[in-house]
């Protein structure tokens, strides 16, 4: 049977679409392979738990991991409550009016602000104006504002996916609006909220530009003691090693990149597992 022109055309087009997909995704795989194969040669317990030595040309990256964890924790503390409450407002309280539209536009715009502009904003507001100085507090607040739109969007979706009947049942049993949200809606939206939060905060952990002027330290001989201290952070450390310090062994840089990517991928996996676990368990 002879193929019609249309079918031949389709075959050719589909081939090129497939090719485009490969062009995008093969480099992703190559990047990961390179990072893993070259980074794993330095990756050991000492690398993860030792302080940097000799002007960061050897030793470990312990303080940068600690700093990143502090920043992630701080970001969560500020962004999670505001994000969830904001999503509750949008999902349970807001009417379809101008205010809601403006809030939605604000969220879209927050999500689009360049990360380096967040850095400027954090510098202007938290570091200088509120006099927090370059500190974990200022950095966490800056990152929190940055991840807020993602947490709001994910939480709102999770809340709206809770069936309306749950709310009706709760009201019909004499519950108030807040009781209904707290006991009949929020518990069932939590897995979705959690997934979205983990994804957004893990991305925040990899950001460099927002922490450049708000918290990141080039090198600190000891771990931060309070939220008003500067901290080293994984992504900034990688920047420093690869562009600011001459003659750093490439393996050390790959190792740092591997730890950073590894942490983010692990967080993403955890989020995916939570999501699929609750999807399987979900009975509504």
């Amino acid at each position: 049977m002879k193929l019609g022109n249309a079918q031949v055309e389709q075959k050719i087009v589909f081939f090129f679409l497939f090719l485009s997909t490969l062009i995008i995704l093969i480099p992703v795989i190559l990047v990961l392979i390179v990072i893993i194969s070259r980074g794993s040669s330095v990756l050991n317990w000492a690398f993860l738990t030792a302080m940097p030595r000799m002007g960061m040309r050897s030793g470990g990256i312990f303080p940068t991991i600690v700093g990143t964890f502090y920043l992630v924790a701080g970001t969560l503390v500020f962004a999670l409550p505001i994000g969830i409450f904001s999503a509750i407002y949008l999902s349970e309280y807001s009417k379809r009016n101008l205010l809601t539209r403006i809030i939605e536009l604000a969220i879209v715009n927050l999500a689009g602000v360049p990360s380096v502009v967040y850095g400027l904003f954090g510098l202007g507001l938290f570091v200088v104006f509120l006099k927090f100085g370059a500190s974990i507090l200022a950095g966490s607040l800056t990152l929190a504002v940055m991840v807020l739109p993602v947490i709001i969007t994910a939480s709102r979706e999770a809340l709206q996916s809770v069936p309306r009947s749950f709310r009706e049942v709760s009201y019909s049993l004499g519950a108030t609006k807040w009781q209904t949200i707290r006991y009949a809606v929020l518990p069932h939206a939590l897995p979705g909220i959690l997934t979205g939060t983990i994804l957004s905060v893990s991305r925040a952990a990899g950001e460099t530009a927002p922490i450049l002027f708000t918290v990141a330290a080039f090198y600190l001989p000891r771990l931060p003691q309070s939220i008003f201290d500067q901290a080293m952070a994984l992504p900034y450390h990688l920047y420093v090693l690869s562009t600011q310090v001459p003659n750093v062994r490439l393996e050390l840089q790959y190792g740092t990149a591997l730890v950073l990517v590894g942490l983010i991928v692990i967080a993403n996996l955890v989020a995916v597992i939570i999501r699929s676990y609750f999807r399987a368990k979900k009975q509504w």
């Binding site: 749950f166 049942v169 019909s172 004499g174």
Partner: peptide, 15 residues
């Protein structure tokens, strides 16, 4: 609403 209870068309147990 406590005084006037309601049973819905489809069973609506909370999960």
């Amino acid at each position: 609403r406590k005084k006037v209870g309601m049973v819905f068309a489809l069973p609506t147990p909370l999960p």
